[in-house]
């Protein structure tokens, strides 16, 4: 682990060794896996405290400032005036838009992780790099996805064990923004069967999916598919990735 000092806060990130895996969506016909280049990713989701420091240096992202185009009216709605209460200092920041999250990451010298990068890291359990076929692991995720979480009930970071990469809280605390959230495609290429994959509803959702039993992954793709860049949700936060 290395620590990078940003705005006087220690941000930790871990290196992820590139490799290949089979994401739920995005494989070409006859393609068994896709490869992901090495990158670094934040150990924890970005907290209210982290984001508060960022807004001080970037006043355009203070609660009352962003354009509706860049963040809807719910933006940072759980902050009291200009900042978060002490109680939620170490809780992942939510009610942030994609634009805000991406700007934050750029300010740290990084960016939001891509869908593939995020899924690659999040496929790991505490003991396996690829737990996408592990029934127990998936059932645990489903239980979390099934339950609503009320405002103020989101837990602090680092309360559960990290996965095998040493990354915390990818599941079970919040949803996370990714760079290309509104595309289930690996590349931006137009494909002939694009129409079939456009909507994740009913039968269409199963067409083109790799592992139809991975309901947890379906849900993540479905959630991403329901978003627009300026949306801010009670349970949606983010973490950053870095190329080097």
């Amino acid at each position: 682990m290395i620590g990078v000092l940003v705005f006087g806060l220690l941000i930790q990130s871990v290196p992820i060794t590139g490799g290949s895996f089979a994401p739920l969506y995005g494989l070409e016909k006859d393609q068994k896996s896709v490869s992901v280049a090495s990158f670094r990713i934040d150990t924890y989701p970005v907290t209210h405290q982290n984001f508060f420091k960022f807004t001080k240096a970037h006043p355009e992202w203070k609660p009352s400032h962003p354009l509706v185009l860049l963040a809807d009216k719910e933006y940072l709605k759980d902050w009291k005036s200009e900042g978060p209460s002490r109680k939620i200092k170490n809780v992942p920041v939510t009610y942030v838009s994609w634009f805000a999250a991406q700007d934050y990451c750029v300010a740290q010298g990084g960016r939001l992780p891509t869908v593939l990068e995020w899924e690659y890291v999040a496929a790991a359990s505490e003991t396996k790099k690829d737990a996408s076929q592990d029934k127990e692991f998936i059932e645990k995720l489903l239980q979390w996805y099934s339950k609503p979480v009320q405002e103020g009930k989101i837990s602090k970071i680092g309360k559960t064990k990290p996965n095998i990469w040493g990354v915390y809280d990818l599941h079970g605390v919040i949803w996370e923004w990714v760079y290309d959230f509104n595309s289930v495609f690996v590349t931006g290429d137009n494909r002939q069967d694009k129409d079939n994959l456009k909507d994740l509803f009913c039968g269409f959702g199963a067409a083109g999916a790799q592992n139809r039993a991975n309901y947890a992954a379906f849900m993540r793709y479905a959630l991403r598919n329901s978003l627009k860049g300026n949306y801010t949700l009670m349970n949606l936060g983010f973490r950053c990735a870095y190329d080097h």
């Binding site: 979390w144 996805y145 099934s146 339950k147 609503p148 979480v149 009320q150 405002e151 949803w175 509803f201 009913c202 849900m219 479905a222 959630l223 598919n225 329901s226 949700l233 009670m234 349970n235």
Partner: peptide, 12 residues
């Protein structure tokens, strides 16, 4: 869709 819900929903 209630804000505390985890998932997107729709109706057919």
């Amino acid at each position: 869709n209630h804000p505390a819900n985890k998932l997107p929903h729709n109706i057919d």
